[in-house]
């Protein structure tokens, strides 16, 4: 089996400061990988390098494209990379306002990616939008409402629907449950888990919440000061952490 994403020695520097360094891993189809670490550990920098939002200073990010197999997304042309960004890739921002068009209705938000890849039948677009709103548990009669009339949890679910409507294969998530109430988080996690399995999605989830990765991620990567300090099966890393920093991280979680 070939990996869907193969990351090789990726590094990003901010002047003399290390954003992330020497990051390598393979992600296989259907796998969900969590990246944990404290603020400033380089996990968001890494995610943005992988998703093409930042240009890494070194390394390769190979993606198994549908048409041409493994391609380095760092060196591919910008139109190709942007095309991936609205077809095979999805990016779920922590802040829904960064991932939604706030002045466009919920239906328009979900339909945008469809129209971006050439859908030109209003009825079909609307039908798919209704279907996707249902899958993220937003009532169909909210389809013409604007996101600013939605609660935080609904906005986040709308952002997910907007991203998944074109059937991407790889989803990048940056703290998808950050800033939400605990009960809303649980609902979102459950939803994400279901969608990931149903659609056979691969995902990379950046978070500092260990409970989130335990529920969503198959594998875990622990970062500190821009370096990967430990990787492995999620439950193994959390239950039998090997690195000093991971042990500290795990033991620092407050028990409920």
């Amino acid at each position: 089996m070939t990996p869907l994403l193969s990351v090789q020695n990726v590094a990003k520097y901010y002047g003399s400061r290390v954003g992330c360094e020497e990051v390598s891993f393979d992600l296989y189809p259907g796998e969900v990988m969590g990246i944990v670490g404290e603020s400033g550990s380089g996990k968001s920098t890494l995610l943005n390098c992988l998703a093409g939002h930042l240009a890494p200073d070194a390394g390769k990010v190979l993606f198994d494209t549908r048409a041409n197999g493994m391609q380095d997304t760092v060196t591919m042309s910008e139109p190709e990379r942007r095309m991936l960004g609205r077809t095979d890739w999805a990016f779920v921002h922590q802040n829904a306002r960064d991932g939604l068009r706030m002045s466009v209705s919920a239906g328009g938000n979900v339909g945008e990616r469809l129209m971006a890849v050439g859908a030109r039948h209003y009825g079909d677009i609307r039908e798919q939008a209704v279907d996707w709103l249902g899958r993220v548990e937003i009532a169909a009669d909210r389809i013409d409402d604007r996101p600013r009339q939605f609660s935080g949890g609904m906005q986040q679910r709308l952002q997910i629907a907007r991203n998944l409507v074109t059937g991407p294969r790889l989803v990048f998530m940056d703290e998808p449950t950050g800033g939400l109430d605990v009960s809303v988080q649980a609902r979102l996690l459950d939803l994400l888990r279901g969608l990931v399995r149903e659609m056979g999605l691969s995902a990379i989830i950046v978070t500092h919440d260990l409970a989130v990765v335990r529920l969503l991620a198959d594998r875990l990567m622990v970062m500190k000061s821009g370096q990967v300090v430990e990787t492995g099966l999620t439950d193994q890393v959390l239950d039998d952490p090997q690195h000093a920093y991971t042990q500290l991280l795990v033991s620092s979680v407050l028990q409920v």
């Binding site: 492995g232 099966l233 193994q236 039998d240």
Partner: peptide, 9 residues
């Protein structure tokens, strides 16, 4: 048991 399951390294 946990080692056999891969939960402990």
């Amino acid at each position: 048991m946990r080692m056999i399951y891969g939960n402990y390294l």
